[in-house]
Amino acid sequence: CHSECLGNCSQPDDPTKCVACRNFYLDGRCVETCPPPYYHFQDWRCVNFSFCQDLHHKCKNSRRQGCHQYVIHNNKCIPECPSGYTMNSSNLLCTPCLGPCPKVCHLLEGEKTIDSVTSAQELRGCTVINGSLIINIRGGNNLAAELEANLGLIEEISGYLKIRRSYALVSLSFFRKLRLIRGETLEIGNYSFYALDNQNLRQLWDWSKHNLTITQGKLFFHYNPKLCLSEIHKMEEVSGTKGRQERNDIALKTNGDQASCENELLKFSYIRTSFDKILLRWEPYWPPDFRDLLGFMLFYKEAPYQNVTEFDGQDACGSNSWTVVDIDPPLRSNDPKSQNHPGWLMRGLKPWTQYAIFVKTLVTFSDERRTYGAKSDIIYVQTDATNPSVPLDPISVSNSSSQIILKWKPPSDPNGNITHYLVFWERQAEDSELFELDYCLKGLKLPSRTWSPPFESEDSQKHNQSEYEDSAGECCSCPKTDSQILKELEESSFRKTFEDYLHNVVFVPRKT
């Protein structure tokens, strides 16, 4: 048989008469490798580009789960590009990614509803959504962080984005990388972005840091009482949809009607710091009717980097990364020049730590249904340095008659930039024990000054392991946590139920 035959053949030295091919099969003959313009397919066939392209389009058009959109890589027609490569849609070739590779997620039936953290986790790592997304989240724990972890990498949506009755959302900033909504599939009414009845939605994105392009379709905003109209108009300008909307697409009466839409800028007039305090004062603000001013709200939190936005980490279910302080308005003076500047002394802060701070007014709604208010920009203030805590785990070892090696770990709280350490030492008198000992005694162990690591005695271990207080009263049991108490109650309830079950099964009433 021919060298490319495997198993047997019907005619000697003829690659077209093989029972099976050793390498690849091409047009009725066995070959060692697939010549151009053919590609290896499933490690035994040679196919042309049209064959591989037909497989790709067949799966793409069917949208069946589990099928493969075949691509070409290293002269092979394979189910998908290997790690580190992405497909070129024009020629199906796998090309190296520039940075992290995109991950295209194809949605069944063309859309997916995100109504819980669990459903959001199914899209973790996706960068391109081939379909439409509907966000409908009523509640949950730590929602802002969970949504950002699972949806934060999405850069492109081919269909539309719909935010509907998501009472738990305060902001859409968890879509931190969303840059493009194509609108290839539109919501009824030709809408590519749809926001309806979101009672706590206050911000779409921080438009000073976020760009969003909507290729096709219109915007729809109705019944978002805490979303200011200025935020919607800003989205029109940034996304390129200005002029597409009709009169009733953006409701003037049901958007922002319960919001404090600040239209003035508060400026800080005085800032002073110490290692654990920050004193702030800002310019006074009074609405047209000074009785509408209820006070100020001061927001602050630790910020290692200057990239904080107002609604980071917030949701309507209680999660809030900001510390909020309510401040009463100052006494009002008739003389504008003698107006008191409101302020606040922030206490209990960490030394040498940068804080993000902003302040906003708290006002009631005027009778004319106009909203007044003022808010400052987010500023960054760093507390002063102070003395560091003591170095940890000092170790001293003498390696000769004239040297001592000293080692330690950095302090747990540096409280500033540590530039150097101060080492103090003092000579001590020799131990009298060394002169009084009889060095001729056998088995004498000389006193040693070398360091030995501390260890816990058996008594201390027994005390720590004991669940009861000892007789001397030195140790006591740790208080039980809520989960331990709940577990004990469940076990007790189970024992009672099981005992009742045994009584009912074992003891049967005697027939009379």
Results as ranks from 00 to 15, higher is better:
103 K>W: 05
104 V>A: 13
104 V>C: 05
106 H>S: 08
108 L>S: 09
109 E>H: 15
111 E>S: 08
115 D>Y: 06
115 D>S: 10
118 T>L: 02
119 S>G: 05
119 S>R: 08
120 A>C: 03
120 A>M: 13
121 Q>P: 02
122 E>Q: 14
125 G>Q: 09
126 C>Y: 02
127 T>C: 12
127 T>H: 03
127 T>S: 14
127 T>Q: 14
128 V>K: 06
130 N>L: 05
131 G>A: 02
132 S>G: 07
133 L>S: 02
133 L>T: 03
133 L>N: 01
134 I>L: 09
136 N>T: 05
138 R>E: 02
138 R>D: 03
141 N>A: 15
142 N>C: 15
144 A>Y: 07
144 A>W: 10
146 E>M: 12
147 L>P: 01
148 E>V: 05
151 L>T: 02
152 G>W: 14
153 L>S: 12
154 I>C: 03
155 E>Q: 07
156 E>A: 05
156 E>M: 14
157 I>P: 01
160 Y>R: 08
160 Y>I: 12
161 L>P: 02
161 L>V: 08
161 L>T: 06
163 I>P: 01
164 R>C: 09
167 Y>R: 06
168 A>K: 00
169 L>N: 02
170 V>Y: 04
174 F>R: 02
177 K>F: 08
178 L>P: 02
179 R>H: 14
180 L>V: 11
183 G>V: 02
184 E>L: 12
184 E>S: 15
185 T>R: 13
185 T>K: 13
186 L>G: 12
187 E>R: 09
187 E>L: 11
188 I>D: 12
188 I>V: 10
189 G>Q: 00
189 G>S: 12
190 N>M: 14
190 N>T: 14
191 Y>D: 08
191 Y>S: 15
192 S>V: 13
192 S>T: 04
193 F>E: 00
193 F>S: 01
195 A>F: 05
195 A>P: 01
196 L>I: 14
196 L>Q: 12
200 N>K: 14
201 L>D: 01
201 L>N: 01
202 R>P: 11
204 L>N: 07
205 W>Q: 04
207 W>I: 14
208 S>G: 14
208 S>Y: 12
211 N>R: 07
213 T>C: 13
213 T>K: 06
213 T>M: 06
214 I>Y: 04
214 I>K: 03
214 I>P: 03
218 K>S: 00
219 L>E: 03
219 L>I: 09
222 H>W: 06
225 P>V: 04
226 K>S: 03
227 L>M: 15
230 S>H: 04
231 E>L: 10
232 I>V: 04
232 I>T: 14
233 H>T: 10
236 E>A: 04
236 E>T: 14
237 E>H: 14
237 E>V: 15
239 S>T: 13
242 K>I: 08
243 G>K: 14
243 G>S: 03
246 E>A: 08
247 R>W: 11
248 N>S: 10
248 N>W: 10
249 D>Y: 07
249 D>I: 15
250 I>V: 15
250 I>E: 15
252 L>S: 13
252 L>H: 10
252 L>K: 07
253 K>E: 13
253 K>P: 14
253 K>G: 15
253 K>M: 15
254 T>A: 06
255 N>H: 02
255 N>M: 02
255 N>G: 02
255 N>L: 07
256 G>T: 00
257 D>A: 02
257 D>M: 06
258 Q>I: 01
258 Q>L: 06
259 A>E: 02
259 A>N: 01
261 C>F: 02
261 C>T: 07
262 E>P: 05
264 E>V: 04
264 E>P: 03
265 L>T: 07
266 L>E: 01
266 L>C: 03
266 L>T: 02
268 F>Q: 01
269 S>V: 13
270 Y>V: 14
270 Y>S: 14
273 T>R: 10
274 S>E: 11
274 S>T: 09
275 F>Y: 04
276 D>M: 15
277 K>P: 01
278 I>T: 13
279 L>Y: 12
279 L>I: 10
281 R>C: 15
282 W>R: 00
282 W>A: 05
284 P>M: 13
286 W>K: 04
286 W>P: 00
286 W>E: 03
288 P>S: 10
289 D>C: 04
290 F>I: 06
290 F>K: 00
291 R>T: 02
293 L>G: 01
293 L>D: 01
294 L>N: 04
294 L>A: 03
295 G>H: 01
296 F>A: 04
296 F>K: 03
298 L>H: 01
298 L>R: 01
300 Y>L: 13
303 A>Y: 14
303 A>P: 07
304 P>L: 15
305 Y>M: 13
307 N>P: 08
309 T>H: 12
312 D>I: 14
313 G>N: 14
313 G>K: 15
316 A>S: 13
318 G>P: 12
319 S>L: 09
322 W>Y: 08
324 V>S: 02
325 V>C: 15
326 D>P: 09
328 D>S: 13
328 D>A: 14
329 P>R: 13
330 P>F: 11
330 P>V: 05
331 L>T: 14
331 L>G: 14
331 L>H: 10
333 S>D: 12
334 N>G: 08
334 N>E: 15
335 D>W: 15
336 P>L: 08
337 K>T: 14
337 K>P: 13
338 S>V: 13
339 Q>E: 04
340 N>L: 10
344 W>M: 01
344 W>T: 14
347 R>C: 08
348 G>F: 12
349 L>E: 00
351 P>Y: 08
352 W>A: 08
352 W>L: 05
352 W>R: 02
354 Q>M: 00
358 F>Q: 06
359 V>T: 05
359 V>Q: 01
362 L>N: 02
364 T>L: 03
365 F>P: 13
367 D>Y: 10
370 R>P: 08
370 R>K: 03
371 T>Y: 14
373 G>K: 03
373 G>W: 01
374 A>E: 02
374 A>W: 03
375 K>L: 08
376 S>R: 00
376 S>P: 02
378 I>L: 14
380 Y>E: 03
380 Y>V: 12
381 V>P: 11
381 V>T: 12
384 D>Q: 06
385 A>P: 09
385 A>K: 06
385 A>S: 06
393 D>G: 11
393 D>H: 10
394 P>C: 09
395 I>S: 06
399 N>A: 09
400 S>A: 09
400 S>C: 09
401 S>D: 09
403 Q>A: 12
403 Q>T: 13
404 I>Y: 01
405 I>H: 05
409 K>P: 10
411 P>F: 02
